[in-house]
């Protein structure tokens, strides 16, 4: 195994593209080192991207924010601007692992790990976040929802890697929230999860919504049918109940050591309902 720490994006792409064996990107390392330890992967090349320009920066852009691929959870959580604009995205990311893991883990790493239970992904998808990808053919943008393909697999081509994620601007009466279910209060992988983003009009009616579910299907699901249940409402009990069942309807989870199909299906709706209410209140709505 070689360890390389390139100083610019072009060199990083070159290294990744030229490697004939297994290459891994290292930013926070909280997944890669676990995989190394378990012998799940034996990379020939590790590319540490932490020296790349802007990779650790959070930059205002077009009323939103561009978040570098090596920004840790601890740093993002300390950023007042992002936390105010996209609190659900930040809280999803901050739920990953312990304080120690937060000191290193990155949102992009969480996304590229390809897990359907990745805590930062439902929030990013509900936010219509866009990933910027560097590769042998230059730079391209790709909606976050199009990155995960199946458990452990993402859509990036050889030599490509994500350099940042962009969170767009949003109207004044808008917010988001993320909730997950875990058996303990910390340290677990999500058994089921929901990210909800809402926009309200002046009287508190929901005019736009995105509902994304984690850990209930091979990839994070964006559930338009659930969003439709609350658009045009003030999140009354009936519409929330409809939304919860729309969520449960699309679940296609697995039985494993962390939860049952039945449990995941049931709690996904409950979490979506609760997350919607939190987002609604954050957006200035009152139920």
């Amino acid at each position: 195994m070689r360890y390389e720490k390139p100083e610019n994006v072009a060199d990083a792409v070159k290294l990744l593209h030229a490697e004939t064996g297994v290459a891994r990107i290292l930013a926070g390392g909280t997944d890669v080192l676990v995989q190394l330890k378990a012998g799940m992967v034996e990379p020939d090349l590790i590319v540490d991207i932490k020296d790349l320009d802007g990779i650790k920066d959070i930059t205002p852009e077009d009323g939103g924010y561009r978040i570098g691929a090596a920004v840790s959870g601890a740093r993002l959580g300390e950023h007042a601007g992002v936390t105010a604009l996209w609190p659900g995205v930040v809280e999803g990311f901050e739920l990953i692992g312990s304080t120690q893991v937060q000191g290193r883990a990155t949102m992009v790493g969480n996304l590229c790990n390809g897990s359907p239970a990745a805590d930062s992904v439902p929030g990013l998808i509900a936010a219509n976040a866009v990933a910027r990808i560097a590769g042998p053919d230059g730079t391209r943008d790709c909606a976050v929802i199009d990155i995960p393909v199946s458990p452990g697999k993402i859509s990036l081509a050889k030599g490509e890697f994500i350099t940042s994620v962009f969170l767009p601007k949003r109207p004044e009466r808008a917010s988001d929230a993320y909730l997950r279910f875990i058996p303990r209060t910390e340290m677990d992988i999500a058994v089921a999860a929901a990210g909800v983003s809402l926009e309200l009009d002046a009287d508190g009616t929901c005019v736009a919504a995105c509902v994304a579910l984690g850990a209930v299907a091979p990839t994070v699901l964006l559930v338009d049918a659930a969003a439709d249940c609350i658009i045009g409402t003030k999140l009354d009990d009936a519409s929330l109940k409809a939304m919860a069942s729309a969520c449960s309807d699309v679940c296609n989870p697995i039985d494993d050591r962390r939860g049952t199909i039945e449990f995941r299906t049931q709690t996904a709706g409950v979490l979506a309902k609760r997350a919607a209410l939190i987002a609604y209140e954050r957006a200035g709505g009152r139920t």
Binding site: R184, T185, E186, M187, D188, I189, R258
Partner: peptide
């Protein structure tokens, strides 16, 4: 054994 780790063998943490 499906859960031979301190991630999935869930001993109580301080916040529990």
């Amino acid at each position: 054994l499906q859960n031979p780790s301190l991630l999935d063998y869930r001993i109580p943490v301080a916040s529990d």
